[in-house]
Design a protein around this nucleic acid. Sequence first.
DNA 1: AGTAACATGTAACGCGTTACATGATTTG
DNA 2: CAAATCATGTAACGCGTTACATGTTACT
Lengths: 178, 178
Amino acid sequence: MDVRTLCLGVLAERPMTGYEIKKTFEGAFRHFFLAGFGSIYPALAELASTGSVRVESVEDKRHGKKVYRITPRGRDHLAAALAAARPQHKVRSEFLVLLYFAHLLPPERLHAVLADMARQWERTLTDLAAVERRSAELTPGQRFTLGFGQTVLGAALDYTRAHGPSVPAAAAAPRAAE
Amino acid sequence: MDVRTLCLGVLAERPMTGYEIKKTFEGAFRHFFLAGFGSIYPALAELASTGSVRVESVEDKRHGKKVYRITPRGRDHLAAALAAARPQHKVRSEFLVLLYFAHLLPPERLHAVLADMARQWERTLTDLAAVERRSAELTPGQRFTLGFGQTVLGAALDYTRAHGPSVPAAAAAPRAAE
DNA sequence: AGTAACATGTAACGCGTTACATGATTTG
DNA sequence: CAAATCATGTAACGCGTTACATGTTACT
């Protein structure tokens, strides 16, 4: 499942500009899917070239604003992609790698890593709380992913706060004898 | 943080073959870092070329078994990489994308997605339980990542079982009018 | 005898990330 | 007037994934 499908998915709800799509990704999506402009714009260009979306250049105010609208063909592609994608949930955690090797880290570094990660999760939870305030506008599926994020991130944060501080770091010398 | 650093990290504990490194990744690492042979062998070759590991061709039994051992220089590189890496925890969930668009999925597909994901998490938890049985051999940091995985995966599984079945799928017709 | 596990590697491909490059409009 | 936000795109690079290709040893 690539960025194209995700763009198609959000466009199935309403027409948007590439910029708005990115904002959407940063909202309810932020805890399970990230995409930058460098992925979104090329994806949109390709969707337009295959007839999955129609582009409408809006000259309302600013110079070159483009609104993308999904076509019936795009809806077919979306349905096919959603039918074919096998459910996966991949985690790539440099945080856990760092903790795995905690015994090789200076104590202050380990402490900083723990504090930094907790801060990131707190921020994400704050963002999700903001999405929750608009909960009435969400579909049940979207509410599911929101609750999932809050539950799982909350569990991660609680576990880290409870057990992180008792993980021992490396002993004094940064470069131990071999 | 790339596969090279991870290989260096596990080699800091004891010398291993590429095959054993992959097994290690499939054990305690499996819930937060994946790497296939296609990543590991080239990484090992590069580590050898930069003097971070020493290769010892063991001709004990089979044809070409290679044991990699970390060098003092490799330990320096590892320490530098662990000091520089900023803690991150990235999730890429096609499962949540599918749930986000649940209203576009046929009911039986949604049901299958939910069941499939639950099965995968159950399997991972089984694998982690096997690692836990050797818990005495683990460092505190490794036990932290193990407990983290069990807690967070458990929370994900519980949430999905509790709220997944009540998410409504698309209405009968697979291709709704536009 | 057959299968699973052990063991190593290469090459092509796809994909996302990052940095670069530009400019208008709104808000403080 | 400065800064933040809105708005679009390109190009290079790095990285991992997948498929391909091969052969041995241990177990049943």
